[in-house]
Structure formats: C-alpha cells, structure tokens
C-alpha cells in the first residue's frame, strides 16, 4: 500500500523514473491479460501501450478506493474491449465444428497445466467466445454485466460462454494427458 502510494504520487508528478517503476511492476501481469483478450501479439502490445498511456494520463482519477492492481486491470480490460469493439466479434456465431482441431503444443513433462498452455487454449477460441469466457470465468463478471459491457443480449453472453466451455473441454479431452480417461471437466 505504501509503495503503491509512492508510485501513484510519482506518476502524478509525471516523474519518469516512477512511471517506469510502475510499468516494471505491473506490465508483466497486464501483458498476459492483454494476450488473453487479443490473440495477435502485436495488437496485444499496442493495447498494453495504449492502456499504460491512459493510466499515466488519468492517474489523478485513482483515489485509492481499490487496490492499484485492480484499477490497472480495469483500464487494460476496457482498452482491450475498446479494440475488440471495432470488430464486435461477440455478435458472430461460430459453430463448434468450425473450430480448428489443432491443439497447441503442450509440454507433456509438466505435471500441471501452465498458463502458457491455457493461454494458447484461450487464444484458439473464436474472439466472441474468448471475450465472454475471459470476462465471466476469469474476471468474474456476471452475464448481465457482460451484456451491458459488450452491448449484447444476456442470452448471447450465456451461449458464447457455453460454447467456449464446450470448445475448451474438447481441446482438453483430445490432449494426450487426458488420453488415459482422466476427466478434463475438472479444469472447467
């Protein structure tokens, strides 16, 4: 909390050293957050860049009413959604059969699924499913909130999420690590 305060105050003074420290502390997590929403790595970098510029420009609006990290995440999510809104992918309906059966190359030596593997799974989802899955399953938004956020019907949000789960489940089941009959539902 104390160091967050120092960081925020330094950013308010537009102290470049402190701005850099804020970036170094949170950029790693926020970059993964960007990549969960934006599949293209270049676009994800652009979103991260835009988000940090907004953060520095609007740091005055942060009043310590929530953890700094939560505030930063909200800005990154909103920036990513703003980017996605240009295409409105959540209005497209994608057949499960249309999904490419190619699975990401997972490291089978790992006892558990690491985040790179799961990130690849999420990125393989159609953009609409991916966005709703991120918002609902990971960020914890409710379907009414998602419908308001993406300007879609609540039913669309539910169906996109349901489809995302189904696709992820199919991918996990076809993974070699689950070939012995081990259920993949535990991950979903």
């Amino acid at each position: 909390m104390q160091d967050e305060y120092v960081l925020v105050e330094g950013c308010r003074r537009q102290d470049r050293i402190v701005q850099r420290q804020l970036y170094e502390r949170f950029a790693g997590k926020l970059f993964v957050l960007c990549k969960r929403y934006i599949k293209d790595p270049d676009e994800a970098e652009d979103v991260l860049q835009d988000a940090f510029v907004k953060i520095y420009r609007h740091i005055d609006s942060f009043r310590f009413e929530c953890p700094l990290e939560a505030w930063l995440k909200r800005i990154v999510i909103n920036t990513a959604l703003k980017q996605l809104r240009k295409e409105k992918p959540w209005e497209q309906t994608v057949d499960v059969q249309d999904m490419a059966p190619v699975l990401p190359q997972a490291d089978e030596s790992l006892p558990a699924l690491n985040y790179q593997y799961l990130l690849q799974l999420i990125q393989e989802l159609p953009p609409g499913c991916r966005t709703v899955f991120n918002l609902y399953a990971i960020e914890g938004y409710s379907h009414p909130e998602i419908s308001e956020l993406l300007d879609i019907a609540e039913g669309t949000s539910k169906s996109q999420y349901s489809r995302a789960r189904m696709l992820l489940q199919q991918k996990l089941q076809s993974d070699k690590r689950f070939a012995d009959g081990r259920p993949a539902e535990g991950y979903l």
């Binding site: 993964v32 970098e45 991260l48 940090f52 799961l118 399953a137 990971i138």
Partner: peptide
Amino acid sequence: FWRKTFDEAAETPPPRVWDAI
C-alpha cells in the same frame, strides 16, 4: 483453476513497448 493460474501469470513485454509509451 483458470483464475488462479492467470492471477500469477506474468510475461515481460518487449522493450519496445516501454519505448513507445
């Protein structure tokens, strides 16, 4: 499962991102 995995996930962005910022 998903939330905890990604709560701890971090990946350093390329240096050009900070340069652009």
